[in-house]
Design a protein around this nucleic acid. Structure first.
Length: 424
RNA sequence: GUGGCUGUAGCUCAAUAGGUAGAGCACAGGAUUGUGAUUCCUGGUGUCGUGGGUUCGAUUCCCAUCAGCCACCCCA
């Protein structure tokens, strides 16, 4: 094995994987078109400060997972660990995110987090994200969930994903609740495990999500977020649930569903699967009504969500949802020097005559046997044979590879028209 | 970041109580010097992840390191 290898956690996506990716990407594109969302393409590198101010300085992402480096002028830059911060920055910078205005964006691209790699968890991974600015009602929350549900339907994944929702309340109510939790768990500090003690300092809400069975009783006795909710958030969440139920969306309210990024408030949701081990979340999102103002813009409500592309692809592969094999119409067998000499002149003329013709021209020589083997493996429907005899007679031999039938000869002048009728 | 498992041909995997390695698939050529299945024959598949150590000798034992995977953690 060579000493040259990809950087840890940064994987190659090879031709055999691409049909799954292509199908997912095309499905998403169609979906966004259907719902009226616009694509944006934003930089992969942003100022480090942007992520400190949005994601939160005491989050895992910011504290230990960011790829940060100094630019040549000494400014600290970071490979984006997620897409929302850059979207908000762009929206503010271009004056697009304004009160009373709605923008519905989507983007796609690589994200970077320095985590310990596992299947479905990479240091460079790909997300498709949605960001909606300017809508504060639960209706847009529902739309994002419906859009996502439709994606699972289109991909045939509906049976392996489940929706969980929760509300985090307003920043104020969340803050109040956080303090109640800290007080409660601090009073029972001796019963907490190591992880939870650490969480107590950094993200006390996470203790509620602990998998340690020893803490079950303690957690059940803890204050409940829903008791601290402000009335507006409570109403928002109630409407959300009513609308989801009305739209026939199956969901589970998980009061322990907490997001790891500080900017979320009110609605949060997560689509989970049990097919990917510990990497259960395949898509997740929530409201971030305070973020635009927090980053210097006007006060504009917003909501977003993101899909983990590798994880969705893994589900597609896991379920054996076989993508269509790439179709080839014609494989051109070129045998002998004379055929190779006139080969491209002819094949280019056929491409002119039949736009969109999917034609593979044999390169690299080889015996008839070898070339036919390649033709077969290309899944071509037809073989066009050009050998010494054909060049001499100015014809090609046309042979069906996928169906019964005799091969026949076609004069050079007629090949374009013939291919057009067969493959056009 | 913590704990654990794994690392041999392009792929899936064997083997050697330390003496430098095989099988299937795949690939190439031929039987069929102008025709893709099957069959038969032939062929190379290789720094045994990398670097040290022990040893006359290490793919095998030890250490380190790199990578993948599993759980935790975290998250998409």
């Amino acid at each position: 094995m060579s000493t040259l290898q990809a950087v840890r956690g940064m994987h190659d996506i090879l031709p055999e994987d691409m049909p799954y990716w292509a199908r997912l990407e095309q499905t998403l594109r169609d979906l966004f078109d259907a719902y009226g969302y616009s694509e944006v393409r934003l930089p992969i590198v942003e100022k480090t400060e942007l992520f400190l101010r949005s994601i939160g300085e005491v989050t895992d992402i910011v504290e230990k997972e960011m790829y940060s480096f100094d630019d040549r002028n000494g400014e600290s830059l970071t490979l984006r660990p997620e897409g929302t911060a850059g979207s908000v920055r762009a929206g503010i910078e271009h004056g697009l995110v304004q009160p009373q205005q709605t923008h519905k964006w989507w983007y796609s691209g690589p994200m970077f987090r320095h985590e310990r790699p596992q299947k479905g968890r990479y240091r460079q991974f790909h997300q498709v994200g949605i960001e909606v600015f300017g809508l504060e009602g639960p209706d847009i929350d529902v739309e994002l969930i419906l859009l996502t549900r439709r994606l699972w339907q289109m991909l045939g994944l509906s049976t392996v994903v489940q929706l969980e929702i929760n509300t985090l309340g307003s920043p104020e109510s969340r803050h109040t609740f956080r303090q109640l939790l800290v007080d409660y768990f601090s009073a029972h500090r001796d019963r907490l495990d190591e992880d939870s003690l650490r969480r107590l300092e950094r993200n006390p809400l996470r203790i509620l999500d602990s998998k340690n069975p020893d803490l079950k009783d303690l957690i059940e006795g803890a204050p409940r977020l829903h008791d601290s909710l402000d009335d507006e958030s409570r109403a928002h969440f109630a409407q959300l649930q009513a609308m989801l139920a009305g739209a026939g969306v199956a969901f589970v309210v998980n009061p322990h569903l907490v997001r790891g990024l500080d900017y979320y408030n009110r609605t949060v949701f997560e689509w989970k699967t049990d097919r990917l081990g510990a990497q259960a979340a395949v898509a997740a999102g929530g409201r971030y009504d305070g973020l635009v103002a927090q980053l210097g813009g006007k006060s504009v409500p917003a909501i977003g969500c993101a899909f983990g592309m590798e994880r969705v692809v893994a589900l597609l592969q896991d379920l054996g949802v076989a993508p269509a094999v790439a179709q080839v119409d014609v494989y051109v067998v070129l045998a002998g020097d004379a055929a190779v000499r006139v080969g491209f002149q002819l094949t280019e003329a056929w491409r002119d005559a039949v736009p969109g013709l999917r034609m593979v021209v044999n390169c690299g020589g080889g015996s008839f046997k070898a070339q036919f083997r390649r033709a077969d493996r290309s899944h071509a429907r037809w073989a066009v044979i050009l050998g010494e005899d054909e060049v001499q007679k100015q014809v090609i031999t046309l042979k069906p590879l996928r169906e019964q039938g005799e091969q026949r000869q076609v004069a050079w002048m007629m090949v374009g028209a013939t291919l057009k009728s067969l493959c056009g």
